[in-house]
């Protein structure tokens, strides 16, 4: 008796289960995440996301290494706090922000595959939610991952927070700050990416907009001696300052803005950017 079989590879009717819109949404999230990280795509598309992710994890990895090899007296003085870690990774987070949403959104419109998605059991709202979910998860890699690595690495070497309560509080703060940063930058980059179908333009637009808000806020607050609360709207600094303050850190010298004001600034930008993306997709003409 032989173990070989002949398979009929032709078309055949399908009478199995047809999973609903939830399955379609999850499939789109997975597919978009694969696209962002270059999976199932040529090797060159994997380089940038992997490189950025690696760079984001480098500072906490170095600090964990220092904690392992240096005497405790030295490490206590040199190791950053969990809030300080954002100062080391803010540039790479912004770099990732410039890359992720344009990669998730722009090619669908540019290639026309958006019309195939909207001809499937997906509404525009579900499509956008799936894309936001994928972008948010990707951003969590760099907003949540590095401080989490620092926490785990230091805790394993008994250099972490004191007791279970301290550990839980630090974890809660890391998750809260990471999710806040991811939510804001997801909305921001999706808003920018919804306005053009060219990835490079979306990335450059995001960068320019972030730098412009920094510059305008700094000019008003410092150059014109205006109110300091406008600093809460500087997209390159305020979110990371909010993340620091969520860890209980004091405001840094030139950035005296209350936590609640920073939170209002971040929420305002998140809602405004999300509204831009939604408005754009709600009125987008896919086919006539």
């Amino acid at each position: 008796m032989t173990a070989s079989r002949i398979y009929d590879s032709g078309y055949r009717p399908y009478d199995g289960p047809r999973l609903g819109a939830g399955h379609a949404t999850r499939s789109l999230v997975t597919h978009t995440l694969q696209r962002i990280f270059g999976l199932h795509r040529p090797a060159r598309t994997k380089v940038l996301p992997m490189l950025i992710t690696a760079i984001a994890f480098l500072p906490p990895a170095v600090f964990v290494g220092l904690a392992a090899f240096l005497p405790k007296q030295l490490t206590d003085a040199t190791l950053p706090t969990y809030g300080d870690i954002y100062g080391f990774i803010s540039a790479v987070v912004l770099l990732f922000v410039m890359f992720v949403a344009p990669e998730a959104l722009c090619p669908d419109r540019r290639s026309g595959v958006l019309s195939l998605y909207l001809a499937a059991p997906l509404t525009r709202a579900r499509y956008l939610a799936a894309k936001a979910g994928a972008v948010g998860i990707a951003l969590l890699f760099v907003t949540l991952g590095p401080p989490l690595l620092l926490l785990v690495g230091l805790s394993l070497q008994s250099a972490g927070p004191d007791g279970p309560g301290g550990l839980a509080l630090a974890l809660l703060r890391i998750v809260g700050a990471g999710v806040t940063l991811a939510a804001l930058y997801t909305a921001l980059s999706m808003g920018a990416s919804s306005l053009t179908d060219r990835r490079a333009v979306a990335a450059a637009g995001t960068f320019i907009f972030v730098q412009a808000t920094n510059a305008v806020a700094a000019i008003i607050a410092f150059g014109l001696n205006g109110p300091k609360w406008v600093l809460a709207f500087s997209l390159g600094r305020a979110p990371f300052e909010l993340a620091r303050q969520m860890h209980g850190e004091r405001a840094i010298d030139d950035f005296h803005v209350a936590t609640v004001v920073l939170a209002i600034g971040c929420i305002t930008w998140t809602l405004a950017a999300a509204a831009v993306a939604w408005r754009r997709y709600a009125t987008l003409q896919v086919t006539r």
Binding site: P17, R18, L19, A24
Partner: peptide
């Protein structure tokens, strides 16, 4: 796209 249309 087959998955998006509901196939496992």
């Amino acid at each position: 796209l087959a998955q998006i249309h509901g196939l496992p």
